[in-house]
Design a protein around this nucleic acid. Structure first.
Lengths: 149, 149
DNA sequence: TTGATATAGATGCAACTGCATTTACATGAG
DNA sequence: CTCATGTAAATGCAGTTGCATCTATATCAA
């Protein structure tokens, strides 16, 4: 049976990602705003609401290394965008909670982020194509079908 | 008319990229080999053959910043994987040429790279899906149709 | 309780990146 | 030729990342 060529997928995937990412990050930098790593973190914390998130939970959600989260949290805390609460259940841990300033910042980033991303993506696709592309990309993220490994 | 949702494309695009990239880079690291930036550079230089490439040409091909190429070339040269020749046409410039060791290294990286990438991608798609995905991703890289901007 | 092992998170150090600037040569106008 | 401007590449510095290790607490067996 015919085999799909994985490079025909990977090469444009890498380039498309690099290209869209670059336009978004450039737009954020021009607006004097922090990058997508800060945005993603603030987003997760805002979703978590008042309960906040443990650093290791953030680590799983964002696919970052442990020390990455540790230092990201440090910077965001220094910028006043999140608060570190001591964790009652576990003396080793802490709970990260977004501050009002953090939520405001997330909103400011979002305005620029969404506009730039839309500009970078929308013009290239019809709605049907966009849906199909999203669907196919999602397949890469699901665990592989057992019979194909 | 219905508008495609760009986030439905961007989010899985970013995640799929991160996920595949991570498996490839991990495999390279485990094999004690350099990362994809070195591979891409060696690949371009090998394609360019004996004529080599000017740093600014590499910069365009790899979408790297100027100082990024400058330092990458420095490291690759120190590792003996490329040679810097003085450029006869332009006294400011130089020409980067791959060495036999560089070509050998590219081949070693390729063995691991291709296997890891194949494992990360192939199981998720039928050949038809892979083709369609490659096609759609390529649309992101072409200049946008004029009537959609 | 005590000791062995596991987990949460921080951190020292070396390598890498981004930004701004610098050096050196090229080019074109006068 | 000479000066002003432009382009190729390097570099100092501050900030960031990766790796390995370290500290502190938790958990569980004996």
């Amino acid at each position: 049976m015919e085999t799909p060529d994985p490079f025909a997928v990977w090469l444009p995937l890498a380039r498309a990602h690099k290209s869209v990412l670059a336009s978004v990050e450039t737009a954020l930098k021009q607006a004097g705003l922090p990058g997508l790593d800060w945005y993603d973190t603030l987003w997760e914390l805002e979703c978590a609401g008042d309960a906040g998130l443990r650093p290791f939970e953030l680590q799983e959600k964002l696919l970052l290394p442990q020390y990455g989260v540790s230092r990201l949290a440090e910077r965001l805390a220094k910028a006043g965008l999140l608060a570190r609460r001591t964790c009652n259940d576990d003396g080793r841990g802490q709970v990260l909670v977004i501050t009002p300033e953090g939520a405001a910042m997330r909103a400011r980033i979002w305005a620029v982020y969404s506009a730039a991303m839309q500009q970078a993506v929308t013009p290239h696709f019809s709605p049907g194509e966009a849906r199909r592309l999203a669907e196919l990309l999602a397949k890469l993220l699901r665990p592989a079908p057992a019979d194909k490994i």
